[in-house]
């Protein structure tokens, strides 16, 4: 057995419980397909694509919520382009030294390194500036295109699937890798949700309260790198950042609390993914583009809903103010509670 084959089989052995889960999932969707007569559920690749889409619909807005509210919406785009360089590195190594490694794994590694670099640059210059972000973005993409062009003869796969995403090229292995990324992202956010929220909302107060802001920033950008690589399979490098931003922006229009905005952004993202995949299947269009267009449509509806909500809320405001003025229960005197009407 050759070295690359050994590596591949070692990875497959690691992922084997997930392969078993994927089979189960596929059987379930086949059954749903037969019961409902939905044509798109008769293909195995579609089962995997839908699962990847559902996972992306959770992890992208989950991380995106923290990014958007820190005004870091563009970091996803920058990391997606460096992930493309990672894909190119993987394809290059496979062609030159026959490494047999999934380009998605090399993309994870390169995107994580780029994420740390962006974070370290911002720590030393004391700001996330769009100039350094733009430099990282174009460097990543330039490196990717250069590696692919000098190696064009040895490539058996088109890079289109990485640039634009492709439902039909979601292999069992890449779906299993996505499941691992999903577990890591959800697990880390579940554990550090308090800290990430504090750092996102009020960095200085978080630091005063004893949190290591720079460590949580590093965790944040590395999770972003994982999400970007995971979502790249169906969204493509160019559109992947939209899933981090658009559902979150929509949710912010209609949500009152942070928890609510997290849940709403996941619901909006899942809606966009499922509708987008279905429409793209029946219309024969690229899934990534359709998913983003649906997401933007949902965002537009959320803006309208938010405006209506605010208008209704404004009518209720004087009532709230008078309740506060009458029922101030501060131990230090009612005058504290009865000030500042809006």
């Amino acid at each position: 057995m050759t070295a690359p084959a050994l590596q591949a089989s070692a990875l497959d052995a690691l992922l084997s419980p997930l392969y078993w889960f994927l089979e189960l999932w596929s059987a379930l969707l086949s059954w749903v397909g037969e019961a409902t007569g939905l044509g798109l559920l008769q293909y195995g690749f579609m089962h995997r694509a839908i699962l990847v889409g559902l996972c992306v619909g959770i992890i992208a807005p989950l991380i995106g919520t923290f990014l958007v509210h820190r005004q870091l919406a563009l970091i996803g785009d920058a990391l997606a382009h460096t992930a493309f360089a990672g894909v190119a590195v993987g394809l290059f190594l496979n062609a030159v030294v026959d490494l047999g490694v999934s380009p998605y794994l090399t993309a994870v590694v390169v995107a994580m390194i780029a994420a740390l670099l962006i974070e370290l640059i911002s720590e030393t210059t004391d700001a996330y500036n769009d100039v350094s972000m733009a430099i990282v973005l174009s460097t990543g993409f330039a490196l990717g295109t250069t590696l692919i062009s000098i190696n064009a003869g040895g490539l058996t796969v088109s890079v289109d699937q990485y640039l634009f995403g492709n439902l039909s090229t979601v292999t069992t292995q890449s779906a299993a890798i996505l499941l691992v990324l999903f577990a890591v992202v959800v697990g880390v956010v579940a554990v550090t949700r308090n800290q990430l929220l504090y750092v996102t909302f009020d960095e200085t107060a978080a630091e005063v309260s004893g949190l290591s802001v720079s460590w949580y920033n590093r965790i944040m950008v590395m999770l972003t790198a994982l999400v970007v690589v995971g979502a790249m399979q169906i969204m493509g490098v160019i559109l992947v950042a939209a899933m981090l931003v658009v559902p979150v922006a929509g949710a912010a229009q209609v949500s009152r609390s942070f928890t609510e905005s997290l849940l709403v952004s996941v619901v909006l993202a899942e809606l966009a993914v499922l509708l987008g995949i279905a429409i793209s299947y029946y219309a024969g269009a690229t899934a990534g583009g359709v998913v983003v267009l649906v997401a933007v449509g949902i965002y537009a509806l959320a803006v309208v809903a938010g405006k209506i909500q605010t208008a209704v809320g404004e009518e209720a405001t004087p009532e709230m103010g008078s309740i506060d003025a009458g029922e101030g229960r501060s131990p230090s005197g009612g005058q504290i509670a009865s000030d500042d009407a809006d």
Partner: peptide, 21 residues
Amino acid sequence: KEMPITVREVVKMGRFPHVGF
């Protein structure tokens, strides 16, 4: 800041140093 967050959620952060993870 346009972040959707309620007053109670802001005040809750005061307990974060006590509860950790």
